[in-house]
Design a protein around this nucleic acid. Sequence first.
DNA 1: GTACAGGCAGTAT
DNA 2: ATACTGCCTGTA
Length: 276
Amino acid sequence: MSVNSGQVFLWEMIGDSWFGTYGSHVIKISPVDGGQEVFSFPELRSCERRIFRLDDDIVRILSEISRDQLVSRLVKKYAGLRLIRQEPEQCVLSFVCASNTNIPMIRTMLRNLTRKYGERVVVDGKEFFTFPSAKKIHRATKPEICSCGLGYRVKAIKAVAESIINGNLDFEALQKAKYEDAKKELLKVYGIGNKIADCVMLFSLEKLEAFPIDVWIARSLARHFKCLSDSKFTEKLSPHQYDVLSDTMRAYFGRYAGYAQQYLFYHMRQQAGRKW
DNA sequence: GTACAGGCAGTAT
DNA sequence: ATACTGCCTGTA
């Protein structure tokens, strides 16, 4: 099993184990002959099924998204690649920090936030930090948060925290809602646009049809799927172009389009030689 | 020094 | 609808 750390900004490998900040928990994953064992702190146990979506019918999903030669090939090539199920709060607070920057920078920002506002946890003699609650972010001043390296993104993370506190972002309701309705609600929040909304829905709100389009996916589509769309598009997408493309890919790959997106994303990153 | 990095909102046409 | 712009900050 491989871990797509693009989705899990706060995980790191130490020795042969992975340590990750998962909401108010710190989780350790160690290899056990041929499988994975998960220890979590303080009270989670055997949560790997939930985190790695092991209850998904992966055979059916991979079969449904194998609509063409490319994805069929990637599904075999990257066998074991999974979607991560994240906690909604951590997911959305993390992704609003992700605009117009790169993964190493996102990791730095989020590490700083956890060190400043999370709870300290010691595992195997090493210190880790849980992810700060929306309440903590809500209470913090903008200059304080800015000092974590967020820059102009402070306005967005505060707006998201505010929406969580006042109930405008209701994750339970969003999970039950249809894709279109959930997206509409997310887009109302300052700092959440098309791409971030789709990421949050795919990784934490059970919308497996969500197909986030970032510059990497846009490059992939421009290379391999241009024929699918009537509208001309480049790597820079207008909001309308984003909608058209995203809808087209959803129609093409079906209800598990998000899985196809993961394989394409991972492949593009591999091709570019990115180590995250 | 300049370009660029996994977007978004604001403004003008 | 579309085009253009500024934005924090670190790295190449």
